[in-house]
Design a protein around this nucleic acid. Sequence first.
RNA 1: CGGGAUGUGGCGCAGCUUGGUAGCGCACUUCGUUCGGGACGAAGGGGCCGCAGGUUCGAAUCCUGUCAUCCCGACCA
Length: 607
Amino acid sequence: MRVSRLMLVTLRDDPAEAEIVSHKLLLRAGYIRRIASGIYAYLPLLWRVLRKVSAIVREELDATGALETLLPQLQPADLWERSGRWAGYTAGEGIMFHLEDRQGRELGLGPTHEEVITALAAELLRSYRQLPVNLYQIQTKFRDEIRPRFGLMRGREFIMKDAYSFHASEACLKDTYAVMDQAYRRIFNRCGLRTVAVEADSGAIGGSASQEFMVTAEAGEDLILTSPDGRYAANQERAVSLAPEPVALADQPCHDLSTPGQTTIEQLCSGHGFDPSQIVKVLLLLARFADGADQPLIVSLRGDQQLNEVKLANAVQARLGAERGSLLELAPITADQLERQGLEPLPFGSLGPDLSDALLSGARDWTPRFLRLADGTAASLERFVCGANRLDTHRVGARWDPSNPCPESLDLRAAQPGDRCHHDPSQHLEAARGIEVGHIFQLGRKYSEALEARFTTESGADEALWMGCYGIGVSRLAQAAVEQNHDRNGICWPVSIAPFEVIVVVASSQDSQQVELAERLYGELQQAGLEVLLDDRNERAGVKFKDADLIGIPWRVVVGRGATDGQVELVERAGGSKRDLSADELLAALLPQIQAGRQGLNNPAQS
RNA sequence: CGGGAUGUGGCGCAGCUUGGUAGCGCACUUCGUUCGGGACGAAGGGGCCGCAGGUUCGAAUCCUGUCAUCCCGACCA
């Protein structure tokens, strides 16, 4: 391809719309243009990158025996109602774009494809003899994100590879899950990404085990916690750890303490010399469910600990989801809401875990009983300080006893960097930021049961299929690669996903010898099967060098002064090493490098 | 959805306080000189100043509304 024909438009200044380096570079180098918030045009250069990433994904998945398919993006609402996800995905903070057709039937624009694929499996998979199967597709997904961000990192329309496997047994599912784990590691490695695999929350997709693949980068949206020995790594949403030991509270009879205006843990501690770990704080939240009745919650946490809302949402869903439908939202209860329910104001700032259910009687739309949960750190305190449920009053020396029973205890706290690890308390968790580029799940039978995807076993029984699902954010991966592979001059694509492998730059388009030699080399390299750009523009050499660096072509051949003697310069983009060599030796020098790069063989190993 | 900021040629910005009919750099076109790290000179083309109302003799500028974009948050009482 000739640069003069490439519609290459590069920018000298950083566009105002971009915040992080990969987003700026993709815009400046002419890879993407924003059409609307979270909606981008993939320009020809980026499309080549995306096709390369897709090709690697295809090769690795095909090698595992997975089958490529293509499923509809327009999906009928009733399919989602059968799985119980329509309300959760469309109401509240739901992320599914949805619309009505001319008959008034509701449709959603696919944010993911469990429903469609499971319905298909229900029709097509009748016998254990057909199992296991693993189907995948690479296509555009639509998600009405709360806040689209950072270019392709979090778009409302993006390219995803999603795969779904079906099994006759859980053991078989685990086998495929392990195979996909390995395939994913190869895919990311071949794409030149340094990734770390972490334990993850399975979120709205559901299911049991799940693992995320994180590209480590400062701009990452996720916090990941790892142990120094590398044996533990988890997304903070999911991470578990040992909390610090609490400071013991002196043995004393339970008594009230006047705490005027002291509504925060900090004020309480500085006012009376308590340690935050001696306090039980009480959070009042409201869980909105699909069935319309809102459920008030009382969550007790040790004062020095933070709530992990994902863990709480999972716990609430597990306890009430069966009868109440999907959990739509979890938010703190406000004084306004109490008033609208016709309830008396509560003494916020002095709440205790034994806050009476009687306070909810007469609520208009709320379940008139609290769901009470406690984090293990609060539940295990012998004596503690807590609110007395009267304004400006706390209780000191409170205990869990029949008059103040300890709620159901579970892990609800957010693990923090510096916490001790479960597997080895001498290890302390370290924090890093990550961009989630892949996620694999063992779904179990959640969807197959909801959508009645059943098969006949060897013994003739009728059972629901076991399922797994596996995603890769293809367009996000491309940007993550830039985030990890760039320098001050621009992008440094790994050869395996670069839009072109080599660029031939004519230093002076006025010099007919240079032009002639460059044209010859352009032809030869193409003949040898390389993906070559020829910068034939009538620009000064400096402009061409700057652009070549910016768009990040891994190898550059400069045809310049030495052309008279048949000499050219070969430059590696990453690292910038240069060597002069004869034009006749060029192909022999370049070909092995690029062939190795294509396979990702030069890429460093990953954890 | 809450908070903050910004909308002026393709891109980056100034002008707005103190109203008088739009400017700079880059990019683009032509010509000349240059030609190995974003050249120089000359001459050009391109703007409903986000949109809609209002105030005024007169609005990019003041007022009201609205739309869009970006950032932070969605959280401990």
